[in-house]
Nucleic acid binder design. Structure first.
Lengths: 342, 342
DNA sequence: CGGTTTTTGAGGTACGCACCTCAAATTCAT
DNA sequence: ATGAATTTGAGGTGCGTACCTCAAAAACCG
């Protein structure tokens, strides 16, 4: 017994090959009754489309465009690398990718780039960007031109994207909160929260999740107001010093990037390894800090998974095919020194 | 420009299609000089053989056989389900899978099954089994008959498998150890270790990793000898009670399965939620226990990833193609209530 | 040099599917 | 019932490769 083919379906359903083809590829001009009959035959025979052959026959290409902020920190670079690697693999299914960088934060620039996307030349768009009104409109316009759009890492809930690929920031914050609470133990302690900026939705959501958990489950822990560093190492150092004059510090929660700066500041203060530090995203810096014991846990999303998921989802959207939610669901990874991936 | 094809190579090398084909498929009847010329043309054009088209032309199928223990606990069932799902997906690339169960622990039976594998009818074999001499020989014999073999979840280091798909048990144990140490805090505490049996390599390795970490980094924690329950709820209850008469218990490390029994025993003793419990593998039982706060962390490997990886690796081996190590590397997942996947 | 062996070329069929065209059959509305 | 619209069938071509046959060309041998 070999696998059933389209011919077998045609015979089984009592229709012609052309009709089976119309049903399989959702082409118009088939009665509902016939569609049902064909689908039943498909189910009866357990037919599975041979994607390799299908793609070969189509000789269709899937040029995808991915927009990433330029200079958005280590994490962005990690994602870019993962995307490049995923693209190499995906080339086997004629999925191509061009990575386009835009000045970080300049959503006007990005919106202009999106406006210039040619639906003929681009089968799908993925973007990592903060949500602004300009960008929201740009995404809407793109989708109106039938270009699938997915949000990467940071959701754009009101832009009407086809999909969001990333983890729930609030849940990630909750996870960080539980770890912080447990690592601190059952004594009264204070926790500082650091962020480059609180303007990004992600940071706000993480902080919210973090607070929720600590308030509910670890009442002995006091979470201090967020210290915004705006990327300035000096501001970080000063802020930390100020906090430390008033009181003892049990832990530090790093909402965004800045592992390197934090490590430097802590070293200067002789605090390295004496404070529980929990951060986000696995980058070269945070990995090194984990390895040397300077930070204790990182909440991360697997960049490889993120990248492959992005291309798969865009491909599915381009073909108007359903998405395997289970496979595309990104997990909230907890990374400590002992389970650092090689 | 699109990808070069065999025709492009023929033109570039100044030979005919037939000759290119002979070179590509290592057929005889070509002068060394010509072979070199063709290979140079291939290199110059950066030709990559389209395996999809090649296999289509060969109309090759990939029937894989996966052997799982019967009655090996919830985890095995979880893996089986994941494999079924992965097989459905993989069917699109003519990869088929048959799941074969053997009596858990009966490696003689399994060895007999492996001896009966027909290399013509099976493109690859995956198996989850403890390593025994009989099995080792059976695996060697299979590989001698040119059937790729991969080990699933539990490694068979001396059987000469083509690949191991799973996580490093020792590292998993270390991860559990760090979490236990941190969750317990900086007070002197005792930790009980439970296992159904210590005959399996996995359990031994986990325990070793666990001990290593606690000895080195958490000297205040005393790890008690392993309590083997042999699957008997009553033995578990008695053993725990015995431990509790002597001393206070800070934590419990569950080396293998048995979440349900442990929860029941703890409930009977009024200890639910008052002891730090860390276990392995995410199953229905351990998930429920995490949700209700009865256990605090689970060290797991993603069964979906494991399943997809298994089929991908077997397929690559069958085609004698290289493996994307990055993609096949399973992560050691730390799962707590807050990052339970949906 | 002729004869033999080896190498090469030309061309075809097949794999499973997509996509196209044109005509025939069926259904629908009036 | 009649014409129009819709639905279906038949058949073809091509995707990139494998594998086959037969004849032509080239290389080799003594």
């Amino acid at each position: 017994m070999s696998r059933p083919t389209v011919n077998d379906i045609a015979r089984e359903a009592g229709v012609s090959l052309a009709t089976v083809d119309r049903v399989l590829n959702a082409r118009p001009g088939v009665r509902g009754k016939t569609i049902t009959a064909v689908n039943e035959a498909i189910a009866r025979l357990g037919y599975v489309r041979d994607m390799a052959a299908a793609n070969l026959a189509r000789s269709r290409r899937y040029p995808m465009a991915v927009f990433l902020p330029d200079g958005g920190g280590q994490f962005v670079q990690t994602v870019a690398d993962a995307l490049d690697e995923a693209a190499q693999q995906a080339a086997a299914t004629r999925t191509e990718m061009s990575l386009i960088r835009y000045p970080a934060g300049d959503t006007h620039h990005l919106a202009a780039l999106l406006a210039g996307v040619d639906p003929e030349a681009v089968a799908g768009v993925a973007l990592m960007a903060p949500e602004t009104p300009v960008l929201r409109d740009a995404v809407r316009a793109l989708r109106a031109r039938a270009v699938p759009v997915v949000a990467l890492a940071s959701d754009l809930p009101n832009a009407g994207c086809d999909h969001f690929i990333g983890i729930d920031s609030r849940a990630a914050g909750r996870t960080a909160g539980v770890l912080m609470g447990r690592f601190l133990g059952a004594r009264p302690q204070r926790v500082a929260v650091l962020a480059e900026t609180m303007l990004l939705r992600d940071a706000i959501e993480r902080r919210r999740g973090f607070d929720e958990v600590l308030q509910a489950d670890f009442p002995l822990v006091e979470v201090l107001p967020t210290l915004e560093t705006h990327g300035a190492t000096e501001a970080l150092r000063r802020g930390l010093a100020e906090i430390l004059t008033g009181t003892d510090l049990g832990g530090i929660y790093l909402l965004g990037s800045g592992h390197r700066a934090l490590t430097a500041a802590l070293e200067g203060m002789g605090l390295l390894g004496r404070v529980v530090v929990i951060g986000h995203e696995l980058t070269k810096a945070s990995r090194a800090a984990l390895e040397s014991g300077h930070i204790h846990a990182v909440i991360a999303q697997n960049p490889g998974h993120l990248a492959r998921s992005t291309l798969r989802v865009l491909r599915a959207k381009a073909d108007r095919q359903p998405i395997d939610e289970g496979q595309e669901q990104l997990r909230i990874d907890i990374v400590i020194r002992e389970n650092l991936p090689a």
